[in-house]
């Protein structure tokens, strides 16, 4: 069974009713807000954000430290930090970890799916590989996504699962939507800018 983004979030929301969930969410929000304060006051539309304090020392709560490190590295290969922020600045792995942790005993299936995902990466040797090896490993695992004729390795499902959640965590973060995509909406403007391109007026 593949779990849709929506399903995962639904679980997260139910789970956040647990005391542990509420605690995490409130700290998470504080961190997000301190980042967004920068967004509103500054004119900069890109640039990496420094990690909020509590995330810098964040101990993984769902994954083992070893799996969490592997997941972090995987998300950073998927969405690397380059000229714009990546999964590192958006703390995508943290987001996934706290969602799964907050599920408590509500969603054993999803939690198992993620454990299996990390196990299949472990089995493929991802955890013990060097950063360079990891990159080519992900490329190999992901190949059938571009060419469905290729054979899918056992880790392909893990790739799709991690990608889906990483993409959500990234583009709902400030690092993703402002930093990487330079989104200009949700602001105060005197007028709405008209298209000024002659080439758009002709087909």
């Amino acid at each position: 069974m593949t779990v849709s983004r929506r399903t995962l979030l639904e679980w997260a929301i139910r789970a956040s009713a647990t005391p542990a969930g509420i605690h995490f969410f409130s700290r998470w929000t504080e961190a997000a807000q301190s980042q967004s304060a920068t967004a509103h006051s500054g004119t900069s539309h890109s640039g990496a954000q420094s990690a909020p304090d509590f995330l810098a020392t964040y101990p993984p709560q769902f994954f083992s430290a070893r799996d969490f490190a592997a997941l972090e590295s995987f998300t950073q290969i998927l969405i690397p930090t380059d000229e714009t922020p990546g999964a590192r600045e958006a703390h995508c792995a943290h987001f996934v970890d706290f969602l799964l942790h907050s599920m408590g005993t509500l969603s054993p299936d999803t939690q198992q799916q993620w454990r299996d995902a990390l196990s299949s990466l472990e089995a493929a040797g991802f955890h013990d590989s060097s950063p360079e090896q990891r990159k080519s490993m992900v490329a190999k695992i992901a190949a059938p996504e571009l060419d469905p004729a290729l054979e899918k390795s056992p880790a392909f499902a893990a790739y799709l699962l991690i990608k889906r959640e990483t993409v959500f965590a990234f583009y709902t973060s400030r690092a993703g939507i402002i930093g990487a995509l330079d989104y200009r909406g949700n602001t105060y403007n005197v007028s709405f800018p008209a298209c000024t391109h002659p080439e758009h007026h002709e087909i």
């Binding site: 969930g21 967004s36 402002i178």
Partner: peptide, 20 residues
């Protein structure tokens, strides 16, 4: 108020139980 998804506790998906 103007809010971005990252301002929201649940990134837009709502408080416990609200989604349902």
């Amino acid at each position: 108020h103007h809010t971005f998804l990252y301002d929201l506790k649940f990134r837009g998906r709502g408080e416990p139980g609200f989604l349902r």
